[in-house]
Amino acid sequence: MDPVFSRLLETANSVILGKEQPIRLCICCLLARGHLLIEDVPGVGKTTLARTLAALLGLKYQRIQFTSDLLPADVLGSSIYDATTHGFRFHPGPVFNPMVLADEINRSTPRAQSALLEAMEERQVTVEGETRPLPEPFFVIATQNPNTQIGTFPLPESQLDRFLMRIELGYPDPRAERELLMGEERYALLPQLPVCLPAERLLALQSRVRDVHASSALLDYVQSLLHFSRESPLYQNGLSPRAGLALLHAAKAWALMDGRAAVLPEDIQAVLPPVAGHRLKLASGGGGVAETVAPLLRDVAIP
């Protein structure tokens, strides 16, 4: 693995205990210039994860707490009359930060949700007729409570599609939990963290993802997966072309993190659950992510 990434991961793992795999996926998502959705019950360390990443990358970070009375202007910013200049001055909202934590995104109304989601997609914000670009890098980590909880506005499929990955953190294992209980306050660790991957370095790496080689044999595999998801009676709807692009791009980032210049089928398989999990729905209705993607991993032969 690229030493830069191993250092990044090691440091992150020292703060968030026992979550190597989600952290790795999280960095992969960042590298692929995608946005991340973390779905889990409160208190498993979603915010800590976001703040740790921001610290490690040396990025300015802001958190938006989504509530049912949140307005789009609270996210995007608004113009306020400035008496000194006798004119309106734009006060950028929290979205104008390189790293945004949209906490409990499904607690707000669809109006506020879509304001953020449009910004995520277009990487620019248009307020009062003026288009303003968002900073680079720009990375949104949204968290949401499971939809079964009270007072939620579930994100529609089209909005879910804008997140490159959706991951679940889950409870820590007993060993990690014991360490957590014994150790210091996690937030207290944050200021001490070194910047492992400065923003310029991150941007350079992001542009290298595109150059990772994907052979035609690999594209065959990706197409087989897409085809299977569309033809199989197991799924309500298949993976979209955008999902296919996302899958390939995430796999490229994953290969890059592994220090390779070419994508292997294993890379596809590694990123498939977080990339495809929220884009597929089993025909039977229920099923967690593992159950949803298991047929793809198990039944689609590598050509």
Partner: peptide, 20 residues
Amino acid sequence: TTAEAAQHHGPQGPGSRRGH
């Protein structure tokens, strides 16, 4: 590995674990 992967959102190939 598969079970573990399912829990953690993504199978981790034994090869990729080699990095650790």
